[in-house]
């Protein structure tokens, strides 16, 4: 056990609890620095995330920040999606999954940078921070 592994766990936990994609920290650490197979790394991250999310959700629920009416139907659909996603992963194997994971990281990272810059410029123009709270009627 080394200090880098412990730090990877720490950062992954901080980002994971904030919904900022902590999982990718641990998977990136495992696949790029320790030669763990992609699917094993994904499995480690999933197992790792259970206690982390339990802690975080416990704290947020206690502070009444969870909107259960949205979360529950969302998760139910999510469980079905997860089963389908895992079936696809088993079919295509770890190497291709790893490339898809890399591609998704680049897309999400680029998107987040653009969005943050756009928000920043918009707020600067208006002179103050206005919280938009639109409810989509999709």
């Amino acid at each position: 056990m080394n200090i880098v592994a412990l730090l990877a766990g720490l950062f992954s936990g901080v980002l994971g609890a904030m919904g900022l994609g902590g999982g990718s920290v641990l998977i990136i650490y495992l696949t790029l620095l320790t030669d763990t197979k992609q699917l094993t790394a994904q499995g480690i991250n999933l197992l790792f995330f259970i206690p982390i999310a339990l802690c975080a959700v416990g704290v947020y629920a206690f502070k009444k920040q969870i909107k259960w009416a949205t979360v529950i139907p969302f998760s139910l659909g999510g469980v079905l999606g997860a089963v389908l996603g895992i079936m696809l992963t088993s079919a295509i194997g770890g190497n291709l999954t790893s490339k898809i994971f890399g591609g998704l990281l680049i897309i999400l990272g680029a998107k987040e940078i653009l969005l943050t810059l756009k928000r920043y410029l918009k707020n600067k123009k208006k002179g103050d921070i206005i919280k938009t709270n639109k409810c989509s009627k999709r």
Binding site: G21, G23, S24, L26, I27, L39, A41, Q42, G43, N45, L46, F49, F74, G77, G78, V79, L80, G81, A82, V83, L84, G85, I86, L88, T89, T97, I100, F101, L104, L105, L108
Partner: peptide, 11 residues
């Protein structure tokens, strides 16, 4: 969301 999370183990 579940599809991506199950397939990639994160994200």
């Amino acid at each position: 969301v579940g599809f991506i999370n199950g397939m990639l183990g994160a994200g």
